[in-house]
Computed example of a mutant assay.
Amino acid sequence: MSDVKAVNELVNKYNLLKSEIGKVIIGQHEAVNFTLLSIFCGGHSLLIGVPGLAKTLLVNTVSDALGLNFKRIQFTPDLMPSDILGSEILDENRHFKFIKGPIFSNIILADEINRTPPKTQAALLEAMQERSVTVSGNHYKLELPFFVLATQNPIEQEGTYPLPEAQLDRFMFSINLEYPTFKEEVAVVKSTTSTIKQNVEAILTGQEIVAIQNLIRKIPVADNVIEYAVSLVGKTRPKSNEATEKVKTYLDWGAGPRASQNLILAAKAHAAINGKFSPDIEDVKAVAIPILSHRIVKNYKAEAEGITISDIITSLL
């Protein structure tokens, strides 16, 4: 199949996926959109929202629509790295045998990821970056495609452990789920308080998703678009010459080079799902907030004056 045909086919598949997911998830269009984009790019997503906004249901529904293996890990303060990766046991012949943990799946839902200590959070780092895990000196490759979709509750601070910056940087998108509108909430209540169950059909296979990820990487990008993305990321760094007054006043840290890479990858995917064969600056702007928001750190002055990360990124755009 030619690349032009493949992009047109991707647009069809994307629209089918959205309509299948829409059978169960009412509203939350932006969250669904960015979750699918991260999957098409081979990236991971952090879903942030108050309880009851269907974060877990969204991940579950996406895995059904993608026809992938799905495992949910409930993160708790007593969760150990071996509960995620697996462990070695002595079999009846007194040989060590590796029992695979839930990480050996296509989609991992890391539920309430900030409820577990950093030691256990760090168990995900190698899997997220290298698509492999190391246990007792043995190296195990994970089956592709592989995604971590983590959820986090932004309001409860008691009994939580903030994610380290290194871990946050591994997430391609940080997606905020908003409260539904009045109409959407009425539809949610109607659909969840009756006996009618919606069945979600699998639209893509694992192989097709890997093919889509390869297609996204093949999409050409003009130099001016790459320069715009790199310049935008550079402007978030308070010590950079390009930083604006707002950035110097309100930020402690800016985004690293992984942000520039993710901006371009996501812009390619955003262009492709809209039927374009190359991204432009508008595509970079469309994905900038969820890619940059978890990679920049506000200072106390910003907190005191009620300045949000989104305000700062919007001012740069």
Rank of each mutant, 00 (worst) to 15 (best):
K55S: 12
F40R: 04
Q152D: 14
F40P: 07
Y250A: 14
I175F: 03
L251T: 15
T192H: 04
T151N: 03
A123K: 02
G42V: 03
N176C: 04
G42T: 07
A65H: 00
P51H: 06
K235G: 15
N138Q: 08
Q207V: 12
I108Q: 08
N274Q: 05
A122R: 02
Y161Q: 14
T181F: 01
G67T: 02
E184P: 00
K119P: 04
T236F: 00
G22I: 04
E112V: 09
I99T: 13
I25W: 00
E156Y: 02
A31L: 01
N138V: 07
P220K: 06
A110T: 12
N138F: 03
G86C: 03
D169T: 09
G137Q: 01
Y140V: 11
T160C: 04
V210Q: 07
V50Q: 05
A272I: 06
L142H: 11
H29N: 14
K71D: 14
D311T: 11
I264T: 13
A110H: 05
E126K: 02
E20P: 00
Y250Q: 10
L232N: 10
S231C: 07
P257I: 12
G159N: 09
R295H: 14
I212K: 00
L144M: 11
I155A: 13
V4M: 08
Y250G: 15
P51Y: 05
R72V: 14
W253R: 11
R170V: 13
L53F: 02
E305T: 14
E126D: 10
Q121I: 11
Q28K: 06
Q198C: 12
E30A: 13
T193M: 04
P117F: 08
I155Q: 12
D64E: 10
V32N: 02
P118W: 03
K141L: 12
I175P: 00
E227W: 02
K197L: 13
V4L: 07
N8V: 09
S260K: 02
I26Y: 01
G206R: 01
K248Y: 12
I312S: 08
A127M: 02
K55R: 10
F104E: 13
N241M: 09
V225A: 10
A286V: 05
P220R: 05
A110E: 12
L57Q: 10
S278A: 07
I264Y: 07
G86D: 04
T314L: 03
N8A: 13
K301R: 14
